[in-house]
Simulated assay, not measured.
Amino acid sequence: MSAATASAPSAIVFEALADDAWLLRLGDGIDDAVNARVHRLTARLRAQAPPWLRDLVPAYASLALFFDENAIDALAVKSWLTAQCAQPDDDASDTQATRRIVEIPVAYGGGYGPDLDSAAAELGLSAHDLIARHSGGDYTVAMIGFAPGFPYLSGLDPALALPRLATPRTDVAAGSVAIGGAQTGIYPRPGPGGWRLLGRTPLALFDVSRAEPSLLQPGDRVRFVAIDAAEFAERTRLPAQTPA
């Protein structure tokens, strides 16, 4: 692929998702540049805040828009979207410095991360090196999916990519920090899962009692901070908080 081809954004494709929803496809697969474009478009549409807009749900390469069909018809929404999408896409406005940064404390290894040692061996690293490289990354919440509050994080060092387990676990602890393919993520609640478990955070990723239930939002920057078992225990006794 030439540099010119790589830098030229693809046309946005509109698909009727439901009677009250449009799906905007900006690309295919996992691509950081496409995902950044999704978040810029999401921010632009959210800033307009028309009264009929009900929700915007960004994904890796697409954006779903839900509207009040009693207030506006689908073709009118499509016309509005077409005009919005025709505006210049200024990627200079998408500086990482303006995004919210959320630090996630993680206790790595042992009972917190039962796959740490085997994952390190598979990668040809020591457990210490794997922790250092994983916690040293600068990640972006590409999307929320799979389960309420589950963040798919882009920015994983390609050298740390690992295939999912051949047989998924039936029970993964809430807060488990894991690698699945070329992504890293955090399980917000107990349940089945096939990603490699490196550690666990004491933070609640999803809590319906909070004003904003999901701790992380698409577009947030995430940094993992290694902690020990004593700090993990201490943090579990603190009231849950949503970062500013």
Rank of each mutant, 00 (worst) to 15 (best):
A4R: 14
S10T: 14
S10C: 12
A11S: 13
A16G: 00
L17E: 15
D19Q: 12
D19F: 06
D19G: 15
L23Y: 02
L24P: 01
G27D: 08
G29E: 11
D32H: 12
A36H: 09
L41F: 10
L41P: 00
R44A: 15
L45E: 02
Q48M: 09
P50D: 09
P50K: 06
P50A: 09
P51C: 07
W52D: 13
L53A: 08
L53N: 07
V57D: 02
S62F: 02
F66D: 09
F67C: 08
E69Y: 07
E69L: 09
A74P: 04
A76D: 14
W80F: 15
W80E: 08
L81H: 04
D91W: 08
A92Q: 13
T95C: 12
T98Q: 14
R99W: 12
V102M: 05
G110A: 10
P114N: 13
D115Y: 10
D115I: 13
A119H: 12
A121H: 15
A127I: 02
L130N: 03
A132S: 15
R133A: 11
R133D: 12
S135L: 07
G136L: 06
G137V: 10
G137S: 11
D138A: 13
D138F: 09
D138L: 11
Y139E: 03
G145K: 00
G149N: 01
G149P: 00
P151W: 00
L156K: 01
P158K: 05
A159S: 14
A161N: 04
L162Y: 07
R164Q: 04
R169G: 10
T170G: 10
G175S: 06
S176E: 02
V177S: 00
I179E: 06
A182T: 09
P190F: 04
G194M: 09
W195N: 05
L197H: 09
L197P: 02
R200G: 04
R200E: 08
S209C: 06
R210E: 13
A211T: 14
E212D: 12
L215Q: 07
L215E: 08
P218I: 01
R221M: 07
F224T: 00
E231N: 01
E234G: 11
R237M: 15
P239D: 13
A240N: 13
Q241L: 11
